[in-house]
Structures are given as structure tokens and as C-alpha cells.
Design a protein around this nucleic acid. Structure first.
Length: 333
DNA sequence: CATCCGTGGCA
DNA sequence: TTGCCAAGGAT
């Protein structure tokens, strides 16, 4: 019976509870909605290991949604640098300002859903975890666990939600969804699930089938084209010229090295160094080319403090490669 | 509904 | 090494 399986999973979560900075121990008072919201947004398509240290930094810098609402946009984007999917950070700022204007977070799913950066899953998760609502947050973990338990080949949303609602112990939805997340991350993994340790293996259709990893069906992968781009290294008085990328699109709003639009036919011959970086839907070979004078809007940033420039990973890698190249040339001379 | 949007870890 | 995949949202 689904409800029994749900209670078993919740008990497994309680018995194996692992503390995370944004969590409250099961059964205790829910965490600050600000922390729940921030962690949920940070965790979108991002691993716990990557988020944990960044979450602590973020919260110590901006302890409340009001403080975040007053922060300069460039500083928030800089703090987000390296976490990826930068629209999240832009929406985070807009959301914080909206909440600060309203005075507090909406406490139900429809209200949360109206805020920027809060979609179907995140609204349901915040409503459950921060406000004790009985919702059905369906993310990739919930999809996978439920598809396996019930032997569903696909991840259609409606049946998954219905099964989740059957399983979730009433009034414990917040802990239960986190139990699902933990199970999906540590036991019911995409590959090589640890069924011998799983509290749901009894009665699991995928386990009974003998090949649990084949549920649900994988989506076909798309080819990733290779693109060539140029970044300009413009240096003066131990500082390098940085620019702000356009507000929308790839790396939108982030600090960057100036350069072209990455539509070159191949790598230029005069590059000092180059790096390869993999984005979601293409791969970029970025050549770093020396240039004498800056053009347009930008600012000088001390080379000794490049780590504090708030550069996304692509440009952090490019700058790092250049410094390494320079060091090797100096050693040879 | 399909596409766009980052990054790092791991097998 | 290459490919896979993650606590999704906006358009």
C-alpha cells in the first residue's frame, strides 16, 4: 500500500537524517522561508555538494530577504558566479525585491508561483517545507523514484503527482519531499541504484524487473556543436579590462572579458592561449588575444584580485590559462 | 511543447 | 577520456 511505503520512506529519512545548512531536523519547526527559498533556487539543477558552501557565504552576506532586496545587482551576480544558470540570480534579485515590497513571502502554492524564478516545482517545495502545506513537488528525483516503484516507463506529470500524494504522510509533506530527494540522490540513483539499501525495494516494480536503472526511459541526447570565440586581454598597470555582458541570454549580466560573438569559423592564429568550455548545448573554444586599448563601457580590475571579479567559470578559466602561460614563459626566459 | 540556459563530479 | 546527469524556469 502506497501510504505504508510513504511512512517507511519518511522513517528512513528520520533515521538517516543528514544535516544541511538549509534544513531543520524532521518534526521540528520549519526553517526560515528565506533560507528555504534561497536553497531551493540554488539547488535547481545543481548538486548539494556545489550548493552547500555557496549557501553559507550567501546567507552570511545577506541574512534576510530585505537585505538581499537592497543589494546592488552586480554584487549578487558576483556572489553567484560559478554556480551557473545565471537567470536564477537575476530572478532571485527581482523576487527578493518583490517580497520585500509585499512584506513577506506568500504562504501558499499559487501565491509563490507568481514570483520570478519560482516555478511549479519550487512553489510546491517551498509551500511544503517552509509553510507545512500538503503539496506534490515533482522534480527529477520524485519522477525517478515513483516511476521505478510503479514501473512507469515515462515521467508524465499528472500520474506522478497523484502517486506522490498517495504516498506522502499528511502534514509531513515537507520532510517527505526531502526524504524523496535524499533517496534519489543516494540510493535510487539514475545509474547503479543501491536497491539492497532501499526502504522501498519491497513492492518496487523496477526492482522486481531486475533492471531498475532502466526506469524511467532516458531522453535521447542531442549533438553538441563546437564554436570558436575570442576574448580580448587588455592590460594596463597590473589591471585588466572587464565588461558587463548583456542583461539577457548566455551568462547574462555577468562580468566578462570583452570579445567577439563566438561565431568565428576557427581559432585565430595570434592567440596567447585558449580554453575549451562546455555549455549545455554547445562547446566553446575560446582564444585569448592581446589587445592594446579598451573600447566602450567597462572597468579596470586588478589582476591580483581576479578571484574577486565575479567572473563566471568560462572567463575564470581563460584568465587562469593566461596567467599559467605567462608564468611558463617567464620561467623559460 | 521545444529550446535555451552552466557547471562540476563521477564512472 | 568522454558522456551522463543534477532539488527547473522562462519563453
Amino acid at each position: 500500500m502506497a501510504a505504508n511505503a510513504g511512512r517507511r520512506l519518511l522513517q528512513h529519512y528520520v533515521d538517516n537524517f543528514r544535516h544541511l545548512p538549509w534544513r531543520s531536523p524532521p518534526g521540528e519547526a520549519p526553517p526560515d522561508p528565506y533560507r528555504v527559498w534561497l536553497s531551493e533556487v540554488m539547488l535547481q539543477q545543481t548538486t548539494v555538494a556545489a550548493v552547500a558552501p555557496r549557501f553559507e557565504r550567501f546567507v552570511s552576506r545577506w541574512p534576510t530577504v530585505g537585505a538581499l532586496a537592497q543589494a546592488p545587482e552586480a554584487e549578487v551576480l558576483g556572489e553567484w558566479a560559478g554556480l551557473g544558470y545565471y537567470a536564477r540570480a537575476r530572478n532571485l534579485i527581482a523576487c527578493a525585491r518583490e517580497v520585500a515590497t509585499r512584506g513577506r513571502f506568500p504562504t501558499d502554492e499559487p501565491g509563490l508561483r507568481t514570483l520570478p524564478g519560482i516555478g511549479e516545482y519550487t512553489a510546491a517545495a517551498i509551500a511544503a517545507i517552509a509553510f507545512g502545506r500538503d503539496t506534490s513537488p515533482v522534480d527529477a528525483n520524485v519522477e525517478r523514484v515513483i516511476a521505478r516503484v510503479h514501473g512507469l516507463p515515462t515521467t508524465e506529470r499528472a500520474p506522478i503527482r497523484a502517486r506522490f500524494a498517495e504516498m506522502a504522510p499528511p502534514g509531513r509533506c515537507g520532510d517527505f519531499v526531502q526524504a524523496m530527494m535524499d533517496l534519489g540522490a543516494t540510493i535510487c540513483r539514475p545509474r547503479a541504484p543501491l536497491c539492497a539499501q532501499c526502504p522501498l525495494s519491497e513492492g518496487c516494480a523496477a526492482f522486481a524487473s531486475g533492471s531498475p536503472e532502466s526506469f524511467p526511459q532516458r531522453k535521447p541526447k542531442q549533438p553538441r556543436p563546437l564554436r570558436f570565440g575570442v576574448a580580448h586581454w587588455i592590460e594596463r598597470d597590473a589591471a585588466v579590462w572587464l565588461v558587463r555582458r548583456p542583461a539577457k541570454g548566455l551568462l547574462g549580466g555577468m562580468a566578462a572579458l570583452p570579445g567577439d560573438d563566438w561565431s568565428g569559423p576557427d581559432a585565430p592564429a595570434n592567440a596567447m592561449t585558449q580554453v575549451t568550455h562546455v555549455f549545455t548545448h554547445f562547446e566553446l573554444r575560446l582564444s585569448v588575444v592581446a589587445k592594446a586599448e579598451p573600447e566602450g563601457e567597462g572597468w579596470w580590475h586588478p589582476i591580483a584580485d581576479l578571484g574577486g571579479a565575479g567572473l563566471p567559470t568560462l572567463y575564470r578559466k581563460a584568465a587562469g590559462a593566461l596567467m599559467a602561460k605567462r608564468a611558463s614563459l617567464a620561467a623559460a626566459a
